[in-house]
C-alpha cells in the first residue's frame, strides 16, 4: 500500500490503483454521513476531486493523487457512508483507477514512511 501526505492510500494491482483514505483521515473527518463518488469513465489528473465525504459539520474533497480513468466506484458507500469510519483502509475504497502514469506511484510513501509522517504532525 502507498500513501500520500493528504492521507490517501493506494493499492496497486498491475496498473489498476484502488484509492481510499487512511484511518487517520477518517478519524479527523468524524462521522461520515454522505459520500459522493466519481462516475465511471471520468478521467482524473492529480489534484482533481475524486470524491466528496461529508460529516455533520463539513464537506471535504478527496483529491486524486494520480492520473487515470475511473473504472469502478464503490457504490456501496452511498447507502452506507459509515463504512468510511468503520473500515477506511479496507472496505471503504472510493474508486479504482486505470493508471495513466505508473511513475506517479514512485513518489508516494510506504507504510513506515507514512507512520513517520503522522508522528511528525
Amino acid at each position: 500500500m502507498h500513501f500520500t501526505k493528504d492521507h490517501e492510500w493506494i493499492e496497486l494491482d498491475g496498473d489498476i490503483a484502488t484509492v481510499g483514505i487512511t484511518n487517520y483521515a477518517a478519524e479527523q473527518l468524524g462521522d461520515v454521513v454522505f459520500v459522493e463518488l466519481p462516475e465511471v469513465g471520468k478521467v482524473l489528473k492529480p489534484g482533481d476531486s475524486l470524491a466528496v465525504v461529508e460529516s455533520v459539520k463539513a464537506a471535504s474533497d478527496v483529491y486524486s493523487p494520480i492520473s487515470g480513468e475511473v473504472i469502478a466506484a464503490n457504490d456501496g458507500l452511498t447507502g452506507n457512508p459509515e463504512t468510511v469510519n468503520q473500515s477506511p483502509e479496507k472496505l471503504a475504497w472510493f474508486a479504482r483507477v486505470k493508471l495513466a502514469d505508473p511513475a506517479e506511484i514512485t513518489g508516494l510513501m510506504d507504510r513506515p514512511a507514512y507512520e513517520a509522517f503522522l508522528q511528525s504532525l
Binding site: 468524524g30 462521522d31 460529516s55 455533520v56 459539520k57
Partner: peptide, 12 residues
C-alpha cells in the same frame, strides 16, 4: 471543543 470522543452524531 468542537466534539468529544463520542463524535457529533452520538452527541447530537
Amino acid at each position: 471543543p468542537v466534539q468529544y470522543p463520542d463524535g457529533v452524531l452520538a452527541e447530537h
